[in-house]
């Protein structure tokens, strides 16, 4: 069973998928409360990536939250390239022991370590590079993966990207490099929710056949059809790990629903970067009863 570490170094075991499911629901409460508190932030993509980040930090990563170090030697490291979904990142980092859960209360406020988009600048444990300006995280992840190879460090590098983010050219520079240089200790995941700020990705700038594109770029591509089903995500990421070390980078195309868990935020791009008002917050929280306790 996977291990989690508490805020202050006390070890406890997540004994069941049920406990991680409870964590998912609490993270969703955190997300809507965080963006509501400051009337800003990005709830849609955050809600859609809850299962991915909970699965990753709760069941897949080999990591040491209580003793964060920038180099991540001997640990798996993760890079969030689509930095605007910082609410889910912060909530999962806090609730898996990187920093006190109470600090979620400072999100996007003056003098906070929880900036609008993640940054190393304020020294928040768990963050290894700033992100927000899109398309840069894959290159950084590749660099970290190359450093691990040079250091004979067999741990794994992960990254997450938005599907709209793939419109950035740097992604394809990085994709070309990773396969040409056999960066096979790296698993990238695309949050394939089909939506971006201006509307459906298909209408804004179609990605075409994404699987075929990455395969043509020399990647091993695997898919998670149910990216909001925790067991499917855990299985999908564990399967992706079996594809490592075979001379190719690994891409996980993960289908999710933007706004998942809050009915009125689903089926639309409108909650990409909008916060709920008081009434809307209550409506969201009514759908997400407390599981592990609010921050």
């Amino acid at each position: 069973m996977p291990f989690l570490y508490s805020n202050f170094g006390l070890l406890f075991i997540m004994s069941s998928l049920a406990q991680l499911t409870d964590l998912c629901q609490q993270v969703r409460r955190d997300i809507v409360r965080m963006v509501h508190a400051v009337s800003s932030g990005h709830p849609g993509g955050s809600l859609g990536c809850v299962e991915y980040l909970v699965a990753l930090y709760g069941a897949v990563l080999k990591h040491n939250p209580g003793q964060f170090n920038m180099d991540g030697s001997g640990e798996d490291v993760f890079f969030l390239s689509n930095g605007h979904i910082s609410p889910v990142f912060y909530s999962v980092l806090a609730r898996t022991g990187y920093f006190p859960v109470s600090e979620l209360n400072t999100f996007r406020k003056l003098n906070s370590r929880l900036q609008g988009h993640p940054t190393t600048h304020e020294g928040l444990p768990g963050v290894r590079v700033a992100s927000g300006s899109l398309g840069q995280g894959m290159s950084v992840a590749i660099g970290a993966a190359l450093a691990k190879k040079l250091n004979n460090d067999t741990s794994v590098v992960y990254s997450l990207h938005g599907d709209g983010e793939l419109q950035e050219g740097q992604i394809w520079e990085a994709a070309m490099y990773a396969s040409a240089n056999k960066v096979d200790n790296y698993i990238a995941t695309v949050d394939y929710n089909g939506r971006q700020i201006d509307g459906d990705v298909e209408n804004v700038l179609s990605l075409g056949n994404l699987r075929a594109k990455f395969e043509a770029f020399g990647w091993t591509v695997t898919e998670i059809e149910k990216g909001n089903d925790l067991a499917s995500v855990v299985d999908g990421l564990n399967h992706a790990k079996t594809l490592l070390g075979k001379g190719k980078p690994v891409m996980v195309l993960m289908r999710t629903e933007m706004g998942m868990g809050v009915d009125y935020m689903m089926g639309t791009h409108k909650w990409h970067g909008s916060a709920p008002n008081d009434e809307q917050l209550q409506k969201a929280l009514d759908q997400l009863p407390v599981t592990l306790g609010d921050y």
Partner: peptide, 8 residues
């Protein structure tokens, strides 16, 4: 970007 990652 790769250079930034290599520092990690």
């Amino acid at each position: 970007g790769i250079a930034a990652g290599l520092t990690i």
